[in-house]
């Protein structure tokens, strides 16, 4: 039904173990290009673990073992041995649950990624890139007069948008968001959600969220996880109106989780 080329990332047979404990059990999930996919489910269901597999952030954890196939753009196996992890993360950016700006200036925060990857060749090019990234993250107007101020002085919502600006500064194809609004108030949350809606024109976004209303507002596709299993996936409108599985229905109607 959908053309294969329209998937940014396809996963299959994914198993994740922490030591002897199974965290993800045989999950297969595909992420359509330039769309927002949300991963929902109760705490401890493995949705964050799964998300962190997609840019290999789990590699840092010694006891964590990831198996399965992860194919990006139908060609690149992101767990291939000869693929430098740094190049992968240049393509797949990430925004974390708690805003984590570096204790540097606002400018330096956004310039960090481009500097490491040598994206720009001149200072003015870098300046433009920083400005553009801040613009896209909807932060530029608020901080344009104080780019040299320390980023940790920004409000929580501004910090999170700065982290988004930082993530898009190296022009990734996919942005992973791990409960990006859970530490924010409703107004800051609304701004981030607007931002997600704008960003999906250029990026594929995968978002883990605890808020079902958020999932229904921002995403076109939703996957429901429970106890490491992928229970159901499909169009967001379908999942939230007439899900196939009873478990899904129980969860979205608030009967458990």
């Amino acid at each position: 039904m959908v053309d294969n080329n329209n998937f940014a990332l396809k996963t299959n047979n994914v198993y994740v173990h922490y030591g002897n404990k199974m965290a993800i059990n045989n999950v297969a999930l595909d992420f359509p290009k330039n769309e927002v996919t949300s991963l929902i489910g109760p705490s401890g269901c493995g949705k964050s673990t799964f998300l962190r597999c997609l840019n290999r952030m789990n590699d840092v954890i010694d006891s964590c073992k990831v198996e399965g196939s992860f194919i990006m753009n139908n060609t690149i196996d992101i767990y291939r041995d000869d693929l430098p992890i740094e190049n992968l993360r240049e393509k797949i950016g990430m925004v974390f649950q708690k805003p984590n700006p570096f204790p540097k200036s606002i400018y330096e925060n956004v310039a960090y990624g481009p500097k490491i990857h040598g994206v720009t060749s001149s200072q003015s090019e870098l300046d433009d890139l920083v400005k553009e990234s801040l613009h896209r993250a909807g932060l530029y107007d608020e901080v344009k007069d104080r780019l040299t101020d320390v980023a940790t002085g920004l409000s929580g919502g501004q910090q999170q948008r700065l982290c988004i600006a930082r993530a898009i500064s190296i022009k990734p194809e996919i942005i992973l968001m791990d409960e990006p609004c859970s530490a924010l108030d409703p107004i800051a949350t609304a701004k981030i959600e607007d931002l997600i809606n704008e960003l999906k024109e250029n990026y594929t976004i995968i978002i883990v969220t605890h808020s079902m209303s958020q999932a229904s507002r921002v995403s076109t596709k939703t996957a429901f996880f429970h106890l490491g299993n992928l229970i159901e996936e499909g169009d967001t409108s379908k999942i939230f109106t007439k899900p196939d599985k009873e478990q899904t229905n129980d969860y979205i109607t608030g009967r458990f989780g």
Binding site: M57, E86, N87, R89, G93, F102, Y112, H117, R166, I170
Partner: peptide, 8 residues
């Protein structure tokens, strides 16, 4: 994590 996620 923030730095690793940017490919550092």
């Amino acid at each position: 994590d923030g730095s690793y996620a940017l490919g550092a």
